[in-house]
Amino acid sequence: MALQTQTGTSTDLNAQIFQRLHPRAYLERFIKEDIRPDGREATEWRDLSVHVGSISTANGSALVRLGDTTVICGVKAEIAEPDLERPKEGFLVPNIDLPALCGPRFKPGPPSEEAQVLSDRLASTITAAGVLPLSALCIHPERAVWVLYVDATCINYDGNVFDAALIAMVAALKNTTLPTATFNEETGRTMCSRKLRKPLPLECLPVSYTFGVFDGTTVLADPAAFEEPLLDTSISIVLDEGGALLSAGQLGIADKDTMSMCVSAAKERLETYGREIYAFLE
């Protein structure tokens, strides 16, 4: 394949055109020099910042920035009747939305396939990790339980939304306070007290670390939006604050060694940075 570049004196415009027309070759060139297009090393993570409690209309909220990827999550609490088969359990309904504003390839309308898959992954990760025991949401068995709608919206899409969204959802849950509710047997209604609010009894605070494998060999941590479609394999490791493995997901060909390498890289990242993620004042 004949590639036209100007060695040495590539202008910005030529580099941009090359990036658009031959994205794979563009990335290969960077990887050969042991660096990525945004200047990071292969195992380097972007900066993460978490802000909570900025939305007054929600019971709990969090804004997470992972590099340029920005996800905002809000928790709304409502009251419903429990499922007949699970009369003492409340509901936790996580969802993520990728609106058209977050990136040029998203169209307005119902959730795209990517948003649906992300919603499902987030829901299964949060449920399987046991972040919030659903029995804590029970107000009165068989009559009234809390429903927590955890809705995340991506404001800016620059790759690796799964990690950012998981942190946003868990941080928003940690920030949530529920009014104390009492169920009146005679009237069949639930009354809430505005004065007494208590936080949720979270059992586990998971953090996710996503890696991508490019060209079968190079493992890139925290893939950006440009790198994501070029990856052959994507691996996500979810750890809790103690470093225990909660979930391992992988799609695409990978060796056993790659997986264990990713797990240790995730643990390393947790040691250096992970513990302060959820340590914020409420």
Binding site: A128, A244, A254
Partner: peptide, 12 residues
């Protein structure tokens, strides 16, 4: 070769 992993543990 491993092509798909979907592993969840409650208390890891």
């Amino acid at each position: 070769r491993l092509v798909w992993t979907n592993w969840h543990v409650k208390d890891g």
